[in-house]
Design a protein around this nucleic acid. Structure first.
Lengths: 191, 191
DNA sequence: CAGAAATTTCAATACTTTTTGAAATTACAA
DNA sequence: TTGTAATTTCAAAAAGTATTGAAATTTCTG
């Protein structure tokens, strides 16, 4: 077997097993990584052959990948065949996944925590007090993480400016000690 | 039902469903969040009662939680009963989870990518070249993320200094333009 | 050390998720 | 519009995970 084929197999296997980490099924992740490993876009039949999976599974996987904007369908004119080209701007891909998952999974968590805390404040038992304190520290932590993710999503950290944006935001900061909350806010609101 | 009980149920339910996100089974996550919601440590029987699950499941969940250092067993002297106290320093808890998962799941990815790239360099086909280029950009991306996670793990971002550490690292930077790689290195190596 | 309380283990079972493949639908060249 | 290639859907089957509970083991009091 050629080197490419050997590496392709290992790569597809590895990213397939990491799919669940990204909230993507192993099969879907395998289809994407297989497409990434090919120089040219491929149609569904080629994927069926290359990965030895059923027509239906490929269709499902491609549907999901289209929704995540991880692949783009292309129609060759004069034919009904659709080929798929994988997104290769991996930074954008990751930012996309993070954004969607944050909205779907984390935003509701923050909402819930903020609803629950006042409910517990209304309960005078010591049990409720301890619980409320813990929810409060959880809330701060999630909120801080949320801010950092927002910075990342607005094109920071890994974005157009790489780490430089963060460096600049920090440099522009006045020298006096700044409470974390303010800083986070400022980072979120910088251009 | 009391407010505490209402919120407890919702909380346990929510964190149970988020368990998989953290690489923890829903049951295990439910046990931890249930313990977090109680002012006092609880023994296995109380957990069985509170969460309506089997003795065995509770034992498994507690074992896993002990391994993650998310709960600490305590022995009341003069009795063989073990009670579990949940870790409440949630920052430490999260850093712990991130560290273990990074080591287990991401470090091998970086290793694999670095093994594969030279193999593809040896293959002269254009197919191999495109594939290698993509693996290379993937490698840079994973490496950069890895550096940022390392900063976080060394007590940065959410650590003792909050965001201030990062701000300081950035301020101490000379004014000339710095390539990202250098900056990352410097961040990783600061005290 | 004996006995019993407590915990852990693990094979069997229940449940959930993924995958298949054939039928239904869609898209389009002729 | 028609015929057909291509895709999608979805009920059923397979695979994979989680849960149970009774037996085995551990732990430690008396």
């Amino acid at each position: 077997m050629s080197e490419v084929e050997t590496v392709r197999q290992a790569f597809v296997q590895l990213w397939g097993s990491m799919g669940p980490f990204w909230g993507i099924s192993p099969t879907t992740a395998r289809v994407y990584s297989w497409l990434l490993s090919r120089a040219e876009p491929a149609d569904a039949d080629e994927i069926v052959q290359g990965l030895e999976m059923s027509r239906g599974a490929v269709s499902m996987a491609c549907k999901e990948l289209r929704e995540w904007h991880l692949i783009f369908p292309e129609k060759a004119p004069g034919s009904r065949r659709v080929t798929y080209r994988p997104a290769t701007d991996l930074e954008k891909v990751i930012r996309n996944i993070v954004e969607i998952r944050k909205r779907r999974e984390w935003d509701p968590v923050l909402e819930s925590l903020r609803e629950w805390i006042p409910l517990l404040e209304a309960d005078p038992s010591p049990e409720a007090e301890v619980f409320r304190e813990r929810l409060e520290s959880l809330e701060s932590l999630v909120a801080l993480t949320d801010s950092m993710v927002n910075v990342f999503l607005k094109g920071g950290l890994l974005g157009r400016f790489g780490l430089k944006m963060l460096v600049k935001a920090a440099r522009d900061e006045p020298r006096h000690e700044t409470p974390d909350e303010e800083l986070v806010l400022q980072l979120e609101e910088s251009p």
